[in-house]
Design a protein around this nucleic acid. Structure first.
Length: 469
RNA sequence: GUCCCCAUCGUCUAGCCCGGCCUAGGACACCGCCCUUUCACGGCGAUAACGGGGGUUCAAAUCCCCCUGGGGACGCCA
């Protein structure tokens, strides 16, 4: 039994897309669950669109999500000799031929065919050519079968039959001498001994041609598994116009990698009723049999719910570090002037359960870190009225005496105030909340006071009383 | 237009392969109630789906056919 080898083969032409990383995840999960190898290969044969920066984005994204690879990253541009050999071989055996048609001519003929209701297939104009065409560098086309049918046995879809006459002679080498995707992918998968090609559904139509190429080249085709697409709310292929689709965007939006992984895993795959999976559980439970066939609409709300879940679960220290990064990025915390680590953990502790993202947490944390609170006008006029000033002043006095300055002691002071004044707790708590945080929304007021500390609490309540007068 | 794929709550899905246990289960969202010092969290509850038509069968969400609908591919992109 040969070992299982799978690969993720992105093209470095921009952001690392949600759909792409989902494909990577499924490949990775399959490899890890089967004890196979996961190979990373960069498909950069299109030199006009590939960039090193994009490669870095791919590597960073995969590392962030914890998808480690066993081999690579290989780059196709480093394997040109291999492609050339294969192409020359096909040429020699008459399984490929030179084509001198220009892209413009081809485009015109393709459109004409479509308009006439015919399959937009290459007309083999150059097939019988004996002499080179003057002044043109040829591309190379693969001579495909025009009779019979090619059957793709797909692990998620079953047998898919294509009539060979529908398939045209695809270009395997550009006129600039570089191989095209269809050739490079076949040569690489064959020579890298890839056993399972797991990729997006949008490649299903390429598969019969690739199968023919494998055979023409004398290779055994691998097993195929085509994953359903991820759609936007309008049920079309997920793309930029649907909003955040890049992995880095989710990172910036304050999502935890385990939330994204968990969410993506459940898009097109399931294991009974289970919703929450650790990476380890995913590895244990992942099978291609449980991959669905229908496309899935990307649902940001559910991702948000998962992110909230993982923020609750996460270690306070880890969240504190991530939070600190965001705080610095926003200039709320200056470099060299970081808050105490233990204190920050306490802050995380009270912010955690109401934060769905790290960015949300950062916004709530701001009031605890700035020198001067920004007062929301509406909150101020509603809660900081003259009649509350004496209450705040009394409260201030009593709070001053609380020692240790912790939740329970603070609570006693408030309860005492409620008993004496006959006011409802909310009537006292809200003004204090506004005084301390500048707004009407925050964690429990005793927690806020404790974490803010005696000094800041005094200062801010005093300032509020001053503001009222 | 041609080819290919797909079809269960608004969304992700379980069930389908091996028909009966399905009065179709779970989750997100939404709505209601409870908890409550605000906002959340949490708890409880409700609404909500087998696209249509034909078969096959004692019995179909499950098997077959057609229709419809949706998607994808049709590049010297990957």
């Amino acid at each position: 039994m040969s070992t299982i080898r799978v690969r993720f083969a992105p093209s470095p032409t921009g952001a690392l897309h949600i759909g792409g990383i989902r494909t990577a995840l499924f490949n990775w999960l399959f490899a890890r669950s089967q004890g196979g190898a996961f190979i990373l290969r960069i498909e950069d044969t299109d030199q006009s669109r590939s960039t090193d920066e994009s490669i870095q984005i791919i590597l960073d994204g995969m590392k962030w999500l914890g998808l480690d690879w066993d081999e690579g990253p290989y780059r196709q541009t480093e394997r040109m000799d291999r492609y050339r050999e294969h192409i020359d071989g096909l040429l020699k055996e008459g399984k490929a031929y030179h084509c001198y048609c220009s892209p413009e001519e081809l485009d015109a003929r393709r459109k004409a065919a479509m308009a006439a209701g015919k399959p937009p297939k290459y007309d083999r104009k150059c097939l019988g050519l004996k002499e080179p065409v003057e002044g043109r560098t040829p591309a190379v086309r693969f001579l495909s079968l025009d009779e019979g049918e090619t059957i793709v046995r797909d692990l998620v879809r079953g047998a898919v039959t294509f009539e060979n006459k529908q398939l045209d002679d695809l270009i395997i080498q550009r006129s600039d001498g570089l191989p095209t995707y269809n050739l490079a992918v076949v040569v690489d998968d064959a020579t890298m001994n890839i056993t399972h090609v797991i990729r997006g559904d949008d490649h299903l139509n390429n598969t019969p041609r690739q199968v023919q190429l494998y055979k023409a080249l004398g290779y055994e085709p691998p097993q195929f598994a085509h994953l359903p697409m991820i759609h936007g709310p309008d049920k079309t292929k997920l793309s930029k116009r649907h909003g955040a689709t890049a992995v880095t965007e989710y990172q910036d939006l304050g999502y935890l990698p385990e939330a994204l992984v968990n969410y993506l895993a459940r898009l097109g795959w399931s294991a009974g009723d289970q919703e929450i999976f650790s990476l380890q559980e995913l590895i244990e439970k992942f099978t291609l049999e449980n991959v669905g066939k229908a496309p899935a609409v990307f649902n940001p709300e559910k991702l948000l719910w998962l992110n909230h879940h993982y923020i609750q679960q996460a270690d306070h220290g880890r969240i504190a570090e991530l939070l600190l990064d965001l705080l610095k990025k926003d200039g709320i915390v200056a470099k060299g002037n970081e808050p105490d680590g233990e204190w920050l953990k306490k802050l995380v502790g009270i912010l955690q359960e109401r934060s769905h993202t790290l960015v949300e947490m950062k916004d709530s944390a701001k009031a605890f870190l700035v020198e001067e609170v920004e007062m929301e006008e509406k909150a101020k006029t509603k809660h900081l009225k003259p009649d509350i000033a004496p209450v705040l002043t009394t409260l201030l006095e009593r709070l001053k005496a609380v020692d240790p300055f912790t939740h329970d002691g603070i609570e006693k002071v408030f309860n005492g105030m409620v008993d004496e004044t006959g006011l409802k707790l909310g009537k006292i708590a809200q003004p204090v909340r506004v005084a301390l945080t500048g707004g009407t929304v925050s964690p429990g007021i005793y927690n806020v006071i404790e974490v803010m500390g005696k000094e800041q609490t005094m200062k801010r309540i005093e300032a509020a009383v001053g503001m009222i007068k």
